[in-house]
Design a protein around this nucleic acid. Structure first.
Length: 453
DNA sequence: TTTTGAGTTGTTCGA
DNA sequence: GTCGAACAACTCAAA
């Protein structure tokens, strides 16, 4: 680097793969310095590796953000390795004055980033891009973290009178010389031998796809969302979760768009509160995971440590492959396998079935979802599995056991969803139930009762 | 400190 | 078919 050159700022992209409402990027741009956008395929010990479906998504999302940066006269530098080493190396190579990033809140990542703040040989700055309210900003009257949703959301909501989002930068100054980069193809994020991603073509990863999805959802109207969101046979949910997970769109942008649509009366909104509360659950889950980092591996309620989980490889396999003989469960598991997604209502039923009907440890289900969901998220996935299992942050009566037949009748009344994913239903090829519902229910109630003593 | 009210998403039984 | 109660008592958050 020549003596007269201005030292650049590295913008370390992580799960914030967007240009709009990206405070780290905006801070780098407004510093007036050249900007080096970076993505690291992180191999830091203690940081959980992403699953196969997430790798598929990441591949497309990185291509999208690289393309958008290209339009602004910039690039995305790709490197792999332990994040700290990669950053130090790149700072040394480029003489960067700073490294900016947007904060994450999950186990391993928080420690990694905190350490970087003191060890990096450059100005390290972090920002909030992901959440409406960061985990430490909301506290109970006693100054503690919340573990019940309703009071948490009441407190968090009251802070959200004026939510603002940043625009996308118009232009990025390039460094005089670009550092070396891997190619996306080098990383082999897209599956091969076999390429199982045929059913994933329903998705459009990337910032543009995310904004389109939001517009589409708001356009149809959240009207009736409170009811329609429970119907897997209808197009009643936003399907923004993977976009949100990868930060292709931010919670603030969604919040503002929902508020604006209500204010301008573009659609008949009766259920916007319900939709916003779903963002609230995401906020709450991040709050919980920040204060309880071992949530993916340890019961939040220690009383569940005594639960007599069954080891049942055959049953677990039947569950993963959608061969339990319970149509709604099987449809959900097949939708997941085919598309990397499962409707929320069906997730609850399928997860409840694994934990309560099969008495298989929720952690096994959590790991399966981690690998197969395109929206697999350290906070949401772990917190929701614990919630279903009954050991989660929010007190839920232990006797709440979903009836997979009753749920199907209620939420898929014409069987459209079930028939779509289980076409052989009603023929001899469809398996008989691997457990009897009434017997399994009785067994689960007994196990929880005795296991808790 | 003690008390009090309340808590995402359910199921089954019997009247 | 509909409706209310029982399930079994716990924990949290705020007053």
């Amino acid at each position: 680097m020549g003596e007269n050159e201005v030292p650049p700022i590295i913008v370390w992209f992580r799960r914030d793969l967007r240009l709009a409402d990206n405070p780290a990027l905006m801070a780098a741009v407004t510093s007036g310095r050249p900007v080096i956008p970076l993505y690291i395929l992180d191999e830091t010990p203690g940081v959980r590796r992403i699953g196969a479906a997430s790798r598929w998504w990441l591949d497309k999302s990185l291509a999208a953000i690289a393309g958008s940066l290209g339009v602004l006269g910039s690039r995305l530098i790709l490197r792999r390795g332990a994040a700290a080493e990669v950053l130090e190396q790149l700072i040394a190579e480029t003489g960067a004055a700073g490294a900016y990033w947007n904060r994450l809140y999950d186990p391993g990542v928080v420690e990694r980033d905190m350490a970087l703040k003191t060890t990096l040989n450059a100005e390290a700055r972090s920002f909030n891009a992901a959440l409406l309210t960061e985990p430490w900003e909301v506290q109970t009257g006693a100054g503690k973290d919340y573990s019940v949703f309703t009071p948490y959301w009441r407190a968090a909501r009251s802070r959200l009178d004026r939510v603002e989002a940043l625009p996308a930068p118009k232009r990025l100054t390039a460094p005089t010389e670009w550092p070396k980069s891997d190619t996306l193809a080098d990383w082999k994020l897209h599956p091969s031998k076999p390429d199982w991603s045929g059913g994933f073509d329903i998705w459009r990863p990337g910032e543009t796809g995310a904004l389109e999805r939001l517009a589409q959802f708001l356009d149809k109207g959240v009207h009736g969302y409170a009811e329609r969101r429970d119907r897997p046979d209808l197009d009643g949910v936003s399907r923004l979760s993977p976009h949100l997970h990868f930060g292709e769109i931010g919670a603030r942008q969604i919040w503002i768009a929902a508020e604006t649509a209500v204010a301008t009366g573009e659609a008949a909104y009766v259920d916007v509160d319900k939709f916003q509360a779903e963002l609230g659950w995401r906020e709450f889950n991040h709050h919980v995971v920040f204060h309880h980092p071992r949530i993916a591996t340890e019961n939040l309620r220690a009383s569940f440590d005594a639960m007599p989980w069954r080891k049942d490889v055959k049953a677990f396999r039947a569950w993963t492959e959608g061969r339990t003989g319970y149509p709604l469960v099987d449809a959900g598991m097949r939708e997941l396998w085919a598309t990397g997604y499962m409707h929320n209502r069906v997730r609850m039923v399928a997860a409840s079935f694994l934990v309560k009907h099969l008495l298989i440890d929720w952690r096994e289900g959590e790991r399966w979802f981690w690998d197969t969901l395109v929206d697999a998220d350290p906070a949401n996935n772990a917190a929701n599995w614990q919630w279903v299992a009954g050991c989660g942050a929010d007190a839920s009566p232990w006797f709440r056991i979903f009836n997979p037949i009753g749920q199907a009748e209620k939420f898929d009344p014409d069987g459209a969803y079930v028939h779509r994913w289980v076409p052989e239903l009603g023929t001899r090829r469809y398996p008989r139930p691997i457990v009897d519902h009434a017997a399994a229910r009785a067994r689960a109630l007994d196990a929880v009762k005795t296991g808790r003593l």
